[in-house]
Write a protein that binds this DNA or RNA. Structure first.
Lengths: 125, 125
DNA sequence: ATTTATTTACGAATTCATTCGTATACCATT
DNA sequence: AATGGTATACGAATGAATTCGTAAATAAAT
């Protein structure tokens, strides 16, 4: 994926993924739940993102409506692979083990992961 | 961790973690296996890193000897948590599942992960 | 001893992301 | 029609990361 969102862009994408579609004002208000950020700052970022193709916008009415133009899954996969390469010497399993070792995963989540592993093992032995 | 290495710094830490200790020239040559980068660029980065406390250096001889001053585990954990927060809505398990779903994990690695999960579950059954 | 090569230190250019001020257009209400 | 509020567009300041050129110091080779 040649489109790599920056940190701020990822914040905005997060809002759009959860809301589905939103105006600049709505996104800006969501961001301001977390930290203070000016309206025109958010606007500018979203304009840049539109130019990059990270978001699409409907310009029919004066107040433009934005939505994400890339899948959350794809972005997650891209960022994950980048992290695996840059910090885990390319080993996804050591990343997984590090993540699990943090102790922030509930028992039911662990069960779900185990199920997934068994499914993966079954598929390609 | 207040010390967050940048992308380039992480590359250098990677070399130091694998070599244990190295001169600027050695690090630069390792980096040049991947991409072209000038000697003084690497030097400057390592000087900045020394100032930040990311690396330590022995200055007794003219050619300084550098080594990493932070644990690979700690950096991995920091970056992992950051990614979980920024791209996975704080859910470590969804990151794990996304990572496993890539299909880049061998059967023996999957086994090892399963063992780890069972060990973690054993703690509070 | 003079030249050549290697090293560190320093400063600065470049690039990119982030931030916001100002101008302009549009719409609604008076 | 004039006023006030809200929107977009644009330009530019700021700051951080990356890059490298040049100078000065040191060591090695002739």
């Amino acid at each position: 994926m040649e489109n790599k969102p920056t940190a701020s862009e990822l914040e905005i994408l997060g809002v759009l993924w959860s809301k589905g579609a939103a105006t600049v004002r709505e996104v800006n208000e969501a961001l301001n739940q977390e930290r203070e950020i000016g309206y025109t700052t958010t606007l500018k970022l979203m304009q840049i993102m539109a130019q990059k193709g990270l978001v699409a916008r409907d310009e029919t009415s004066r107040t433009h409506i934005y939505k994400a133009a890339i899948d959350q899954d794809k972005v997650q996969a891209t960022l994950l692979n980048r992290l695996v390469d840059s910090a885990f010497s390319g080993s996804a399993s050591s990343l997984v083990m590090q993540a699990l070792g943090q102790g922030k995963t509930s028992k039911s989540e662990l069960e779900a992961i185990k199920k997934l592993i068994e499914k993966l093992e079954g598929g390609q032995p």
